[in-house]
Design a protein around this nucleic acid. Structure first.
Lengths: 158, 158
DNA sequence: TACTAACATTGGCGCCGCCAATGAATATAG
DNA sequence: CTATATTCATTGGCGGCGCCAATGTTAGTA
């Protein structure tokens, strides 16, 4: 809980305080911890949200398509869909036109579940950015987006 | 390489685009990948840097002290010190005044190694923030620091 | 002298992003 | 129309990271 603090004052080697990648990494670990704990408190998981969102916004689709849109590895998607199916939030039905395919459909309960998860995660994001003004939140978002875009294109060092 | 891109345009569910924690997490994964690859290219590791830095800046110390300052779990420190010892970058000597303790000392070669790692990581951090101006880098650093500080204090939701 | 604490070490857990190999079903080429 | 290649869901595993518990040894303390 306190070990992910970036700066421990005079206990922190100066060289570490210069590492942005370290700061980003530790802050990401903090936010992941907060959000995963909040989701686990209601028996949910990051991927539940991301899969339900993809289904709600893009409609029924094959697992391969869902994996692509939700950015979840198809290998990991299987377990996620099993859990969502157990909860009654999605339906998995074989595609009559292509028997290799499963058609994944979100249920009415799934829509409600998605709203629930969305609420929880909104609260989490508000909590994370609590010390920032609205402008600063937007700035942080924009700066990170630019870094992310940049690193998405040129993964190697110059 | 491209799967850690936060925004895939119209292929990305809108709900995901609102999640700052997701953006932070993906960007952190990118920066970690870049830096760990750069370090691995010279047979090094994050913890090598962090431990050598702690030793160089605070002087010889017990493993427990090093673990505290370098923010490396003492469990994981053992392997790191073994590797650093094999490279001749540190010395591990039993403390004569307290036989439970090992005194870790950085060697001259260790100082040189630290300079090398420092150079690599500086290049990495420059690369990461390449699209940002100096002002924007400072802003990003400041915003993340405030979030990190905030989350270091109140880990739970309100 | 008995009890407690510090120390180094081993082994393991959970989360995350990632990849390879399998078998079934389908599309495509010769 | 048969052989080959491709798509799909599924299984199982890998490496990195932050984290924790249990062990045996040694040292301070009551």
């Amino acid at each position: 809980m306190d070990d992910l603090r970036f700066d421990h004052g005079d206990q922190t080697p100066e060289r570490l305080r210069a590492q942005l990648s370290r700061l980003v990494g530790m802050t990401a670990a903090q936010t992941q911890r907060v959000s995963s704990e909040a989701l686990r408190a209601i028996g949910a998981h990051k991927d539940h949200f991301v899969v339900l969102a993809a289904l709600a916004e893009f409609g029924p689709a094959s697992q391969a398509a869902v994996a692509g849109r939700a950015r979840v590895y198809k290998s990991d998607l299987v377990a996620v869909l099993n859990e969502l199916e157990d909860g009654g939030w999605i339906r998995r039905a074989p595609d009559p036109t292509d028997k290799r395919r499963n058609v994944i459909t979100i249920t009415a309960a799934g829509d409600a579940r998605l709203a629930e998860l969305d609420g929880v995660l909104s609260a989490v994001n508000n909590h994370i950015t609590a010390p920032l003004t609205a402008n600063e939140r937007a700035q942080l978002f924009s700066l990170l987006t630019r870094v992310n875009d940049h690193l998405s294109g040129s993964p190697d060092l110059p």
